[in-house]
Design a protein around this nucleic acid. Sequence first.
DNA 1: ACCCAGGTGGCCC
DNA 2: GGGCCACATGGG
Length: 224
Amino acid sequence: MSLRAVYQRLKRNLGGQDWWRADGPLEVMAGALLTHQTAWSGVEKALRRLKDRGLMTVEGLAAAPLAVLEECVMPAGFYRVKARRLQEMARYILHNHDSLREFLSLEAGQLKRRLLGLPGVGFETADAILLYAVGHPVMVVDAYTRRIMRRLGMALPRDYEGARRRLEEELPQGVEGYQEFHALMVELGKRHCRPNPLCTPCPLLDLCPHGMKVVGGGGELSSP
DNA sequence: ACCCAGGTGGCCC
DNA sequence: GGGCCACATGGG
């Protein structure tokens, strides 16, 4: 089964995900930093706290006492480092650009390099910002995507950029499709593709891993 | 009492 | 380039 076929099947059955809705680009950027190794429910609480205190602006994040940011970020975990990263990002933009808008309107490659220079922004976070905050057609490669691809027998290259290019080549190209595919990988992964060998069977795809056991019945146990 | 979550950076080899 | 660890709260 081709990757495009996988995508079409998931999309048909799980529907449009309309994922990662946010008030504006800054909220997407903050969410991208806060979601590191963290459940989204905690990220939502943190974003809510920041907004309720009027801190969801570049100026607000840049000027707020670190202790206040930490208190807001708390429910998203890793709160000390994440609060600092939020502030560093805001201060960078404030000190080096006319506005958030101007910063985000840089050419995609330029923007990505600058994002990567910020503390806490690695390849995945940078690409998430490009795709969801700005709307550039780049794939985001996360842990779920890698795991699912591996269990489909289509393991991605280990290096991030190689993996991203592979997905971008094999999928229908464009912002819509990339956002949708990424969302589908995460939602499917949460249900049926955990790191632990004990995973629930996936009714849509043969995700059965490593020849390990499946809980619940319905998944194939075909051992070669 | 585990395991896990929409990663990244620092350190080591 | 890789492998290991810290970073921390909250839900199943």
